[in-house]
Computed example of a mutant assay.
Amino acid sequence: MLVLLPPSETKADGGDGRCLDLDALSFPTLNPVRRKLADALVDLAQDVPASLSALDLSPRQVGEVERNARLWSSPTTPALLRYTGVLYDALDAPSLTGAQRERARERLAVASALFGVVRAGDAIPAYRLSGGSTVPGLGSLRSVWRPVLEPVLAEVDDLVVDLRSGPYAALARVPGAITVRVVTEDAHGRRKTVSHHNKAHKGRLAAALATTASEPADVDDVVAAAAAAGLRCEQTGKTALEIVTEA
């Protein structure tokens, strides 16, 4: 099973790993695009105003530009520890046991505007680039990634559970993947998509899928793993699930 997580805009600083080594990352056929994007970000960082504009940042976020300037020289840490925020707080990777951490490394991957997709244990630096960005000289990330990322994800033989957010799902389609929507249900049974608790519930689901001793192989297994974690998860289509919360 491969669980595709969305990244986060916020990322942890530092790390104790060596500087970025593309050859050490999973999905090595993506490396030419990774290198092109990394070099473009480093070059762009030499012009702070242009970086702030292209990355849709405020002057207060100039530190994000400085991160990009150091892409090739800053320390790395595993992707599952690099990304922070609500989803990753709910996933709570630091609390995993050794056996659970090993399962997570095998089962979890993170969508990335810079790297396309990386597995949980891949060592990456802090950076700033969003899925909806347009890199000067390269165009939209959708146009950059889709031709190379879609074939790579299509080669994944395992069950794919796609938890990516819209801008990252747009970088590459994954036909046949299980998709998950978080909804609220009112007293009359009416449901609507929610955003406030969306990331937290997806983080809890990711944790359940990553750590269950028996690896899920189909939709029913995903629903069962969610239920074991205390989530109300229902199948609404052949490959569509909803996590249902109270309004």
Rank of each mutant, 00 (worst) to 15 (best):
M1C: 06
G14Q: 07
C19G: 01
L22F: 06
S26H: 06
V33L: 14
D39N: 12
Q46W: 04
D47A: 07
L52N: 11
D56A: 12
L57T: 04
S58G: 13
P59L: 01
R60E: 13
V62I: 13
G63M: 00
V65A: 00
N68S: 09
L71A: 00
L80H: 15
L81P: 07
R82E: 00
A90E: 06
D92M: 09
L96S: 10
G98V: 05
R101P: 05
R103D: 07
A104R: 08
R105P: 00
E106A: 15
L108N: 12
A109H: 09
V110A: 11
S112N: 11
G116E: 00
D122L: 04
R128N: 09
R128A: 03
S130D: 15
S133C: 14
T134N: 14
G139C: 15
L141D: 09
L141E: 10
S143H: 15
V144N: 12
R146H: 10
V148I: 10
E150V: 02
E150N: 07
P151N: 08
V152N: 05
L153Q: 10
D158M: 04
L159N: 08
L159P: 03
D162S: 03
R164A: 05
S165Q: 11
G166C: 04
A170G: 09
I178N: 05
V180S: 01
D186K: 01
H188Y: 00
G189M: 07
T193F: 13
V194Q: 12
V194G: 09
K199W: 07
R204P: 00
R204K: 14
L209N: 06
T211H: 08
A213M: 04
A213C: 07
E215H: 00
E215R: 14
E215A: 13
P216H: 06
P216L: 06
A224N: 12
A225C: 10
A227H: 14
G230I: 03
R232P: 05
E234P: 10
Q235A: 12
T236A: 04
K238W: 13
A240F: 05
T245V: 15
E246A: 14
